[in-house]
Amino acid sequence: MACRFSRSHPIKTLVDLIEPSLRGMGFELVQVRLLGQTRRTLQVMAEPAEPSRVMDVEDCADISRAISAILDVHDPIPGAYTLEVTSPGIDRPLVKLGDYARFAGHLAKLEVEPDIEGRKRFKANIKAVDGEDIVIEQDGQEFRVPYPTIRKARLVLTDALIKEAQQAHEARLAVQDESPEGGV
C-alpha cells in the first residue's frame, strides 16, 4: 500500500480502489485524505512513477477524471464531497519509508506517537533509513525514530531543497527536449 496514513476505513477502501488505476496511468499514489466535516474534500496526492517525468495540470485533470469514474461506480463515500487532485510539491509530506531514504540530507518536521525521549515533535535532518528506523539529527543529537510511530511528517522548505528541485526540474526538461516529440 502506498499510503502511510490509509489504514482506516474509508481511506483504505479509497486507496484500494484508486491505486491500481493510478499505477496503470504511470503515477504513484502519495497520500489520500478526507478533509472537513460539512464541506468535505477528498484530497488525492500523486506523482509520476518515473522520476524524470514532470507532473502538470493536465496530469491532475486526467487523474481526476479517472478517479471520478471509479468513485461514481463504487460510491465509497456517502454524501457530497469535492475531489481535489494535487502533486506533493517541494515541501511534500513524507509518507512511505522510501521517502525518507530519497530525501536523506534534508530538513523535515516529524510528529511521533508515542514520544521519543520525551519528544513528540522534531525538526531535524534526515540522516538515513536503517531497517524500519528513520535516523534523524536535531541540534547535534541523533534519534532513531521507528517508522510506525510517525503520525505526520513533511519536508521543510529550505534553500537546499529548492535548489535540488530546480536542478531536477531542469534535468527533466532537458530530457523532454531531447525526446523525439520535442517535449510536446
Score class of each variant (00 low, 15 high):
Pro20Gly: 05
Ser21Asp: 06
Ser21Lys: 14
Leu22Lys: 01
Met25Ala: 11
Met25Gln: 08
Gly26Met: 02
Gly26His: 03
Phe27Ile: 07
Phe27Trp: 05
Phe27Ser: 03
Glu28Pro: 03
Glu28Arg: 11
Leu29His: 01
Leu29Glu: 00
Val30Met: 01
Gln31Glu: 13
Gln31Ala: 09
Val32His: 00
Val32Cys: 00
Val32Asn: 00
Arg33His: 05
Leu35Phe: 02
Leu35Thr: 04
Leu35Gly: 04
Gly36Tyr: 02
Gly36Val: 03
Gly36Gln: 03
Gln37Glu: 13
Gln37Leu: 12
Thr38His: 11
Arg40Asn: 03
Thr41Glu: 14
Leu42Thr: 07
Leu42Cys: 09
Leu42Met: 12
Leu42Ser: 05
Leu42Asn: 04
Val44Trp: 00
Val44Asn: 02
Glu47Met: 15
Ala49Val: 12
Arg53Met: 08
Met55Ala: 14
Met55Glu: 11
Asp56Thr: 10
Asp56Glu: 09
Asp59Ser: 06
Asp59His: 10
Cys60Gln: 15
Cys60Arg: 15
Ala61Trp: 14
Ala61Leu: 09
Ser64Ala: 15
Ile67Tyr: 01
Ser68His: 12
Ser68Ile: 12
Ala69Tyr: 06
Ile70Trp: 01
Ile70Val: 04
Leu71Ala: 11
Asp72Gly: 02
Val73Thr: 13
Asp75Tyr: 04
Pro78Lys: 13
Pro78Thr: 10
Gly79Phe: 15
Ala80Cys: 06
Ala80Asn: 11
Ala80Tyr: 13
Tyr81Lys: 00
Thr82Cys: 06
Thr82Gly: 08
Thr82Trp: 02
Leu83Phe: 10
Glu84Gly: 05
Val85Asn: 07
Thr86Ile: 13
Thr86Phe: 06
Ser87His: 06
Ser87Ala: 09
Pro88His: 07
Gly89Phe: 09
Gly89Cys: 04
Ile90Glu: 02
Asp91Pro: 08
Arg92Thr: 04
Pro93Tyr: 04
Leu94Ile: 02
Leu94Cys: 01
Val95Gly: 04
Lys96Ala: 12
Leu97Arg: 15
Leu97Gln: 12
Gly98Val: 05
Gly98Met: 01
Asp99Met: 06
Ala101Ser: 14
Ala101Cys: 05
Arg102Asp: 05
Arg102Gln: 10
Phe103Glu: 00
Ala104Cys: 14
Gly105Asp: 03
Gly105Ala: 07
Leu107Phe: 10
Ala108Met: 12
Lys109Cys: 04
Lys109Asp: 03
Leu110Ser: 05
Glu111Met: 13
Pro114Tyr: 12
Ile116Arg: 05
Ile116Leu: 13
Glu117Leu: 11
Glu117Val: 12
Glu117Ser: 08
Arg119Glu: 09
Arg119Met: 14
Lys120Trp: 07
Arg121Tyr: 06
Phe122Ser: 03
Lys123Met: 08
Ala124Ile: 11
Asn125Gly: 08
Asn125Ser: 12
Ile126Glu: 02
Lys127Arg: 13
Lys127Thr: 06
Ala128His: 09
Ala128Lys: 15
Ala128Gly: 06
Val129Tyr: 00
Val129His: 00
Asp130Cys: 10
Asp130His: 09
Glu132Gln: 14
Ile134Pro: 03
Ile134Ala: 02
Ile136Ala: 10
Ile136Trp: 11
Glu137Val: 10
